[in-house]
Simulated scan of single mutants.
Amino acid sequence: MNQALNSEWMDLAAGRGGLAAGVIAAGVVVVAVLIGAFFLGSRVRRRESPPPTPEEQPRMPEGGPVREVSEHREPSEMPRSDTRLTPHELPNHGNAPTRTGPATERPRWDEGSSGSFGSGGPGGG
């Protein structure tokens, strides 16, 4: 009986030993792939052009940073026609600039005036 119990433990230990050897082999393969990827990446990096020097960096224009221009434009008039016009038949279809319109103040939100949810508070406009 003791001999049979010992044999079962040996078979069980041998099975776990095979599993442990497989896990170790998989770990070695993963480490080898990571090392190979590191060396391949360093070879690719050596072939790339070097980063730009400070003299090669872009410079700010002499007049300072470029700002956004906000202006009002006059709309182009839509021609009256009894037939349907195609886009290439329309005048100024993106090629000719429109004229600058009169400068008007855009409406702004005033504190205490109505908003999208009602009067904006007691006594508001």
Rank of each mutant, 00 (worst) to 15 (best):
Q57M: 15
A4C: 03
N95Q: 08
P75M: 11
P122T: 10
G124P: 03
H72D: 06
H93P: 01
G120R: 01
P122E: 13
A96E: 12
T86S: 12
S76G: 05
R47G: 01
E68F: 09
A26I: 05
G27L: 06
S114Y: 08
E89K: 07
G63Q: 02
E77V: 12
L19Y: 10
G15F: 04
A14S: 14
D110A: 10
G17F: 08
R67G: 04
S116R: 09
P58T: 01
G94W: 04
G120N: 02
R106S: 07
L19C: 09
T83I: 12
E105F: 01
R80F: 00
R46E: 13
Q3L: 09
S7H: 03
P122D: 12
R46V: 12
A13F: 15
S113M: 12
A103F: 14
F39N: 01
E68A: 11
G94Y: 04
T100V: 12
R43P: 02
N95C: 00
A37L: 15
E68N: 07
S70L: 14
G124F: 05
S119H: 04
G63K: 05
N2H: 08
Q3Y: 06
T98Q: 13
G36N: 09
P58D: 01
D110H: 13
T53K: 15
P65S: 05
E68W: 06
G27N: 06
G18I: 03
R47F: 03
L12K: 11
M78P: 00
N95A: 10
N2R: 04
M1R: 05
V66H: 04
G15Q: 15
A4I: 08
N6K: 10
G36P: 00
S113R: 15
Q3K: 06
P50F: 07
R108N: 08
E74K: 14
N6V: 13
G22D: 09
N95E: 11
P79H: 01
A20H: 10
P79I: 07
F39E: 03
M10F: 12
N2G: 13
P97C: 07
E62S: 15
G64N: 07
G115K: 06
P61R: 02
R45W: 06
A21Y: 11
I35C: 03
N92P: 01
E48N: 12
L5T: 15
V69Q: 12
E62F: 13
V44R: 09
P87R: 14
D82M: 05
S76E: 04
S7I: 01
P65A: 07
R46W: 06
E68M: 11
E111L: 07
P52T: 05
A21E: 06
F117K: 08
A32C: 11
R43T: 10
P61L: 02
L90I: 11
R84Q: 13
L90G: 02
G125R: 04
L12E: 14
E48M: 14
A13H: 14
V29H: 00
R80G: 06
R106H: 07
E68P: 04
G94V: 03
S7C: 05
P102R: 11
P52L: 12
M1V: 09
N6E: 14
G112T: 05
D82A: 09
P51Q: 12
E105T: 13
R47E: 05
